[in-house]
Amino acid sequence: MSSRQSLQLANDNGEHKLLLQLQKSFKIVQQCVTVWCVVLTESRPHLVTLNNLTEQFTSCYSTSNIQLAAITSQLPDVKDKLQQKLQEGVDAKLDVMQEKLSVLHGLCEKISKQCKYSTDLYTKNHVKLNLVMVTTATATRPSIADMLEWLQDTEQLFLQRYWARTYILDQFRLEDKSTHLSDNAIWSYDDKDIQKQFQEKLSYLSFFLEEKL
């Protein structure tokens, strides 16, 4: 009996549907991971500019009028004016970062949705699916349980990174050096580790993703 025939027989217990959904989910997640890394690469130059501007603001903020006496004696408002300009520059860059974050949020939602669809389908059919069927891997694919777990792990990982970045950006205060992104590890990540982890899983899934179910 071919694997296609056996899957068709398995239609009654929902295994076929679940495998189809998992295949679709992993394909979408694969696209999301690629876009995720592209977005982070695009946001890097903006992050560098933001860090430069915050560093300039900090220096400007911490310099006293006595240190700048040669200038402030003739142009007393120069420090305020410069701070205002730097603030405008920082605000513009923060807006860009927020835009990038909203793209990341969209990707997270996409992944979560796929994860939910697959889990819901499994929950709906779990009575009909027996334990052996769910936990046994075949020559061409990992077990359903493994795939569901990978999907949920990936979702959690992406959500974790997204919320960490959002929290850090929300905490950003120009006057408070400890909240600046230059000292922050999360924003310095390019999330290549996520991509690598996912690629490792994909190597087990390559036949499954190409298979015509």
Partner: peptide, 29 residues
Amino acid sequence: LLSKNICHVKDRDCMMFYTAAWLHQPYID
């Protein structure tokens, strides 16, 4: 003022202020 005084700057923050003031042109809004 910046061009006349930049060589007499003695600390890093001041130097950063001078370079930022030149680059960002605070009076041209």
